[in-house]
Structures are given as structure tokens and as C-alpha cells.
Simulated assay, not measured.
Amino acid sequence: MAHLDTSPRFPDPDAAFRLIVEAHRGLTEAASADLNARLVLLLANHIGDPQVLAEALAAAAAASEGRRSDRS
């Protein structure tokens, strides 16, 4: 059974980040949210393993919860 690999995998993480930022440049908030949703679905399909997807969702939710409590 596969597990979520959170180790750095991009040879140039800054370039990957720039790709994402540039994809959103000029989009409305709604169009940006739509792009994010489509990207998530494409990457979830690429993962293709429900257990790994569940781990990724749990990790993302935990990170999001941490940010919410920091704002309080």
C-alpha cells in the first residue's frame, strides 16, 4: 500500500510555485477557485490511490486548521 510522500520532489520548487501563480494571474476570484478545483481533481486522478488521497486531504486539512487557530 502506498503512502503520501511529502518529501521535496521538485528540482526547482520556486519554478513550480511560479507556474501555479502565473496560471492564476488575471483570473477573477471565481475563475481562480475553478482552476484550483480542476487542478485538485486532475492531481487526485493522477494519484489514483484512495488511501494516499485520504492522507493528502487529512494533511491539507490539518495545515488549514493550524492557520485558522493562528488567526484567532
Rank of each mutant, 00 (worst) to 15 (best):
H24I: 01
L57T: 12
G66V: 00
R18M: 12
H24M: 07
A16L: 08
R25L: 09
N45W: 07
A30P: 00
R71L: 09
I20W: 13
H3P: 01
R9F: 06
F10S: 15
F10A: 15
N36W: 08
V21K: 07
L4K: 00
S32K: 08
L4Q: 01
A30M: 05
P8G: 02
R25D: 12
G26A: 04
P8R: 04
D34W: 10
E22A: 15
A63S: 12
R38G: 09
H46I: 03
A56N: 01
L27I: 04
A60E: 13
T6Q: 11
E22K: 14
L35G: 03
A54V: 02
N36D: 11
I20K: 13
R68W: 09
L53Y: 04
S7R: 09
F10E: 12
A33H: 04
G48Q: 02
R25M: 09
A31L: 04
L42K: 13
A58W: 12
L41I: 09
F17A: 15
S7C: 02
S72T: 10
A59F: 12
A31T: 01
R68P: 02
R25H: 12
D12T: 00
A30C: 02
A2W: 09
A63W: 08
S72R: 12
I20G: 10
V21H: 05
S69Y: 07
L43V: 03
P50A: 15
E55V: 07
A16D: 06
L42D: 14
S64N: 11
G48L: 05
V40C: 10
A59H: 12
L27C: 06
H24A: 07
A63D: 12
V52N: 00
L4N: 01
A30L: 07
E29A: 15
I47Y: 03
A37P: 00
A56G: 01
G26W: 01
A2N: 12
Q51F: 13
D14V: 03
F17Y: 15
A60L: 15
H46V: 04
L57P: 02
G66Q: 05
R71M: 04
L27K: 14
P11Q: 11
L4A: 01
D12S: 00
R9Q: 11
A63E: 11
R18D: 07
P8M: 03
I47D: 04
T28F: 05
D14T: 06
L42Y: 13
T6H: 01
L41H: 13
D14F: 06
